[in-house]
Design a protein around this nucleic acid. Structure first.
Lengths: 213, 213
DNA sequence: GAAGCCTTGTGACATTTATCACCAAGTTTC
DNA sequence: GAAACTTGGTGATAAATGTCACAAGGCTTC
């Protein structure tokens, strides 16, 4: 994709108005991130607000012993709530972000935040909307790990992957286990059950969602 | 406590400026909520943004079979991020809020939100700060339930209670079990261990934190 | 195409947590 | 102060999940 112009930005971020888009266009860098590249990692200080123009970024929390826990995807038109959060507090990040496909991001340097906040109402609305969405998403994540067993959590996880990536998911059982903080064997066994139920079909490295929704 | 005036509001909510405090003072209701009273429950539509002037409110998530899961306390000077969230989306609440002591709240009717948002920069900042704080708190909650075993989760839970309520906590083992979505027996056994460690001491209905911090 | 690595399947077993059953002691009610 | 209720303690057992060990087949490399 070529460099965005302001109109293009408004199309992708519908809450922006033209002056805001223009300002961001003038005062940000656009960067292409390759699939697999790390965008944010714990301990790192973040000096940009990050907007996703295109592609997909996986956000996950890391435990003290290097465990991972998948939280959600950032997709086209999203902003990274956590990048804003760290930035605003000048705190080190406590999450990891990795591009799961080639991704184009807009990075707005921290020193523009004050201007954006004070001059553009639409920016405020966008930021609040961003927090709001992620907040709700985190509540759903909490429901899952607080109240549900592994089988339901796995199913929910797969549904989210399907929603983001389509019916065919290319992940190994080990990767899934990492994402839901379980173990490969448990995931394999539960997937086997789902295959018998007819919910999914499996091949090496891929899972295909068969059930409705 | 008597009715707030604008200056009093600024003292309690340091991010407010005087005009904002004045506006809120003119356009909100103040209400006293008794300890134990329910402020918000799932399924309810919320028509106010809620600010805590004094007291404490416990926020918890409910599972599909009526399980509970403690998320955090709202204390003096906090706003309820979730009340704003539900309100702004006209969505039914998905959390419960109960006063754990006599609590004074300010309730700003939904139809004032637009004015507040567009006229008062300080309101925006306050709202964003509110989301930010709760967001971070939720991340910590997720860490606990995603990565930690019951013993550590219980200890963390107790520490948060101590922070909010002081070294002496008046809760039954059953109440604690509900809050962390475990069972009374498990909690009793783990508490017993902590008592042997010298971390806490126990009496009927009360736990006293002995360890440092 | 042989060697080696990666992915998945599966049994056996360990650990963690939940559940059941029941008791004892404290507290409240009448 | 006896009965009823609440709270906490504890053993036995069940269920869920994690860990270990190992096998089989697919894929890659040389």
């Amino acid at each position: 994709m070529t460099e965005m112009d302001a109109k293009e930005l408004v199309r992708i971020f519908p809450l922006f108005d033209l002056p805001l888009a223009e300002y961001i266009h003038q005062n940000s860098e656009q960067r292409t991130v390759e699939s697999g590249e790390v965008l944010m990692k714990p301990g790192q200080y973040f000096k940009y607000a990050m907007l996703i123009v295109n592609g997909k970024v996986k956000l996950y929390r890391e435990g003290e012993e290097g465990e991972e826990f998948f939280m959600y995807f950032l997709e086209t038109g999203n902003a990274c709530a956590l990048s804003m959060l760290c930035m605003a507090r000048s705190q080190a990040s406590t999450v990891s972000a990795v591009a799961t496909e080639d991704t184009e991001v807009i990075m707005i340097p921290i020193h523009h935040m004050d201007v954006l906040m004070s001059k553009f109402t639409s920016w405020y609305h966008f930021v609040i909307e961003t927090y709001r969405n992620r907040f709700e998403e985190l509540l759903l994540v909490i429901d899952q790990i607080a109240f549900k067993n592994m089988d339901e959590r796995l199913e929910w996880y797969l549904k989210r992957q399907v929603k983001a990536m389509g019916k065919t998911i290319t992940l190994t059982h080990q990767q899934i286990a990492n994402d839901i903080n379980s173990s490969r064997e448990v995931v394999s066994r539960l997937l086997k059950k789902m295959e018998k139920n007819g919910t999914i079909s499996m091949e090496r490295n891929t899972i295909t969602w068969l059930a409705a929704e």
